[in-house]
Design a protein around this nucleic acid. Structure first.
Lengths: 107, 107
DNA sequence: TCATCAAATAACCAGCAGGTTATCAATCAC
DNA sequence: GTGATTGATAACCTGCTGGTTATTTGATGA
């Protein structure tokens, strides 16, 4: 049973893949073609990355005619936030820098 | 100019490397030997990973005699938190926009 | 001084991840 | 039905990453 945050880190480590996810976050639902247009890689590459993002639960796909619409599933980021605050928690037991970090998260 | 969160994602994507960082967060400062003892890889591998973590700013090293002590630098996680809340922000702003639109239509 | 120990570096190897082009499947427009 | 278009899959290649063993550097203690 691979931990959830493991999959997330591995998935988001790749720049082009993360760029795709970012675009979906910023601009909402997009078709593969639309994503490919402004990506620096070929359409098959985009499709492959979207498949991996989907497996990680970071995106959803919706088929409409012959095009596929992808959208970000922000909830999937939760384990990442959990892991980070857990690390911060361990740290906090020794120092008090946590407040500073929480302020960032709050804003 | 590689973005800060890019380095962080890449660095934390590897499981053994992340495990090392986690241990340093949980248990505080450790020597290379101590870390190697409970790692599943050889000492050179551990040293290599620590070097990468150090380059990413995630750990500090302190030389004492012939041993090197490593400790986690939690502040380095900030760009990761920033990125995450930024993504969440885009999500929310789109949602707010939709909400706003729906309110207008209601009137 | 010399043997030992801790950690870093060197040199090397294997597997995989991300890219490509070519092709296939499905839908649409005519 | 035919041809075009959209996206997924196949097959393949290459470079990088993470691991290993062997060696080097530096500190210690007899």
């Amino acid at each position: 049973m691979p931990k959830a945050h493991d999959v997330l880190f591995r998935t988001l480590a790749d720049p082009t893949r993360r760029a795709l996810f970012e675009r979906l976050c910023r601009e909402g639902e997009k078709t593969v073609g639309s994503l490919t247009a402004r990506a620096r890689v070929s359409q098959p590459a985009v499709s492959k990355h979207l498949g991996i993002l989907k497996q990680a639960g970071l995106v959803r796909d919706r088929h409409e005619g012959r095009q596929t619409h992808y959208s970000a599933q922000l909830g999937a980021l939760a384990p990442l936030i959990d892991w980070t605050s857990q690390m911060a928690g361990f740290w906090e037991s020794r120092f008090d820098l946590l407040e500073d970090l929480l302020k960032r998260m709050d804003q």
